[in-house]
Design a protein around this nucleic acid. Structure first.
Lengths: 307, 307
DNA sequence: GATAAATTTGAATTAAATTCATACCTAAAA
DNA sequence: TTTTAGGTATGAATTTAATTCAAATTTATC
């Protein structure tokens, strides 16, 4: 009766807190998940969740099954990787380039998990800043870029392949006493004559400029800082605004150090992919890197949507 | 894709060595199991078994999934027991009487497993020999009898309930140099004027006498011994024949200490149940005792059939 | 009281697992 | 050899189970 699919659903519910979001994550409708967990509850004749308009809360029984899921699912992953390994000896190297600065936040746990899963693969970060990271793939200086899709990839002649990771919202960050502190969301105009604090990368690599400010022809100043914490300090001390991934600023917002607001009517969303040559992306361990990123980020980062 | 049901199937295949027998154990047809494992092999694109006319042999990949099964299934059992426990505090006692002498062989691991699963239940063996063990249930001196069904249980007015365990074959045991050593199977007549060596229990509790020798009105002598090893020694030194469960004598047969032959055309089969009052058998831990016996015996005893 | 954001429900649908009936394979016995 | 027994494989039909669809409900909030 209990199946692994149920355990995966439980994990997704735990990570999202909501049936609807969890359903997306396991590629089902919200209704299907509702039926699924109801069937479990009926089978064991015990309540697994407290339902409310805010989502689901695990009861002790639900928690017990969730514990089981957290115990079993990693073992299953490990076994499945071993099966791949049994098919042929898998070894190689994997040099990663990050397009986006903030991604360092979660890359460490990802690399730890990867090393555990593929001890025979040498995984490394390509150091330094690169204006065109995708180019490194063709030059043979890197194996995987983690970032958005390069324009070249849309062309058919490209020899690059990509695996979807997740999308996330880029939020405007402002000081707690900013004039606009009571607005629900910011528009392009709200940035007029403000100072935008960014990482030190070219304008065409900063989504809020490329997709919001440039199209609306907004005048603004710019100032850079290397580290997220430095950007936060500048914003908090009213030197300007920033636009950063929601998960990168979460802890600062929670402690009321700064405010975060969606940008534009639908919010500003950015997509992340693992990109590499066709040859590289066909390898099991490259596919698995994408999988590990999705898994780790789904667990650690709030508010992302898996692609 | 991989589901717990697959792991249960793998375990059954490992225990039986044959698809057909494994299928019975998981309540499927042989065809269903064949489809099931074929689907797994297709999914992982790897061979899990070497097929032959003797059954299935695990490949390294199959073995890896079997290892996973052996790792996961006990954890699942534990979680499911915890769910039962969460529904209401479960405690009590469970005094077991064995109808059959040989059952001591597997009762120790069963009781160990039970104590691990239900630490708050006091499980005990009722000592001594009892001519009518089922009577102890009504007297409140025992909670569960492990043995055959008493005649009284077929009557409707009985307040006893029973849970099926397994059936097993009772084999004739003879010295390696016995005249009949080349027969494939023994008949009632073959026991004529032989000495039958048994445990010291009444004739009507010995299946081979009750079901084979008495109906055929065979004349035979009888001699008793307390321990299986003693019976084996007597048989090996040509003092007589015995009739014992196939699993009880397996190691002696393997070492060519004695010979074992089926009795009668279809063999002599005996069924084992866990019997207790309705009230007792409704308790989760009593049901679970039956389950644990089935599990442990399915794993440890060759040639049994779960009921 | 309307609205929004959740979950639930039951019937209809779709997909998946299982069975049935038979074919196939292989080792051992006649 | 040929046959038989004991095993597995296969494909179509069937059954069962999971999933979706389209409301209905619930509950907090403005």
């Amino acid at each position: 009766m209990l199946e692994i699919r149920h355990l995966k659903s439980l994990k997704a519910i735990a990570e999202t807190g909501k049936l609807g979001l969890a359903a997306e994550r396991v590629f089902l409708t919200q209704s299907a998940l509702s039926h699924q967990i109801r069937a479990l509850e009926t089978h064991y004749a015990i309540t697994l969740f407290q339902r409310s308009a805010q989502g689901l809360r695990f009861t002790p029984a639900g928690q017990r099954l969730l514990d089981l899921a957290n115990e079993l699912l990693p073992l299953i992953d490990k076994a499945e990787r071993d099966l791949i390994r049994l098919k042929s000896d898998q070894s190689g190297e994997l040099r990663i380039v990050l397009e986006c600065h903030t991604c360092f936040d979660w890359l460490t746990p990802v690399m730890d998990a990867f090393r555990r899963a593929w001890p025979e693969v040498e995984i490394d970060l390509v150091a330094g800043f690169h204006s065109d990271p995708w180019h490194l793939l063709h030059e043979g200086k890197a194996d995987v870029v983690i970032g958005g899709l390069p324009n070249a990839l849309s062309e058919k002649n490209s020899s690059l392949n990509h695996l979807p990771l997740f999308k996330f919202e880029i939020m405007a960050v402002l000081p707690t006493d900013h004039i606009l502190r009571n607005k629900t969301r910011l528009t392009a105009q709200d940035f007029s004559d403000e100072t935008l604090i960014t990482y030190p990368v070219p304008e065409d690599r900063i989504d809020v400029i490329k997709q919001v400010l440039k199209p609306a022809e907004i005048q603004f100043n710019r100032r850079t800082a290397e580290l997220t914490i430095a950007i936060m300090q500048l914003v908090a001390s009213r030197r300007g605004l920033a636009a950063l991934p929601s998960w990168g600023i979460q802890s600062y917002v929670q402690h009321d150090y700064v405010l975060a607001k969606p940008i534009g009517a639908k919010g500003l969303w950015s997509e992340l992919y693992a990109i590499g040559t066709n040859e590289m992306m066909a390898r099991p361990y490259a596919k698995d890197l994408a999988r590990i990123i999705r898994d780790v980020c789904a667990e650690k980062l709030q508010g992302i949507k898996l692609l």
